[in-house]
Design a protein around this nucleic acid. Sequence first.
DNA 1: GCGATATATAACCGAATAGAGATATAACTG
DNA 2: CAGTTATATCTCTATTCGGTTATATATCGC
Lengths: 118, 118
Amino acid sequence: MNLDATFSALADPTRRAILARLAEGEVSVMDLAAPFALSQPAVSKHLRVLEHAGLISRSRDGQRRPCRIEAAPLEAANSWLERYREIWEQNYARLDDLLETMKQEAAAEPSKPKRKKK
Amino acid sequence: MNLDATFSALADPTRRAILARLAEGEVSVMDLAAPFALSQPAVSKHLRVLEHAGLISRSRDGQRRPCRIEAAPLEAANSWLERYREIWEQNYARLDDLLETMKQEAAAEPSKPKRKKK
DNA sequence: GCGATATATAACCGAATAGAGATATAACTG
DNA sequence: CAGTTATATCTCTATTCGGTTATATATCGC
């Protein structure tokens, strides 16, 4: 999976909205375009970007080309992000520590002038 | 948090590498630039993009402007992706079903003719 | 076959982007 | 102060992007 293409495709709000719609099932191009006040070629372009990133696939149903969401690149992006989970959880831990420390300091010496680092 | 800016910033391999490096701690601009065969202004531009997306912050240490990773946008991106977790887990379930079905069919009719498309 | 519908492609435009090089700013060093 | 180091900013160019309109292709229904 190509993270460049995946993240780049996800960087556009129209494309994220398209994916959100497709999360509920297959939708044709015209039906996808309807809520967006965009021309049909513009939507087709977005779909091409999503398809190139592997985020959607398309089948044939008469004159329609229904789009289906493909989860693999989303999972790959998620895996990449997971490596950083530790960091934001750690930051929250630090924030919790800080708040706890402040509370204790305030309780212990309510009118003490502020110190910087410990 | 702005998902457009976040995903857009993550869509570049240089910037993802910078974040990976920063995951281990603060690093100055020159030290960040070293492994990349990029000019210093190019690296500064990438840092500007990351900073604008809230993915890094910078402090002052003498002549250095050390960069630090900020986890909040990563967490926001992760939250967005999490909404689709169900989909890829479901797909794996489908794949498992399919493989199971194929195995059973193969056992039942070992020499079923295959169709080919052109 | 013809006409209608669904979608794709081509040609174009303006704004944004990534890179380079040159220069400017800011802080340390002697 | 001058010189060096670290970083930012300006200017330029080439490319990409998101949109448009116009046109082409594919499939249906008759």
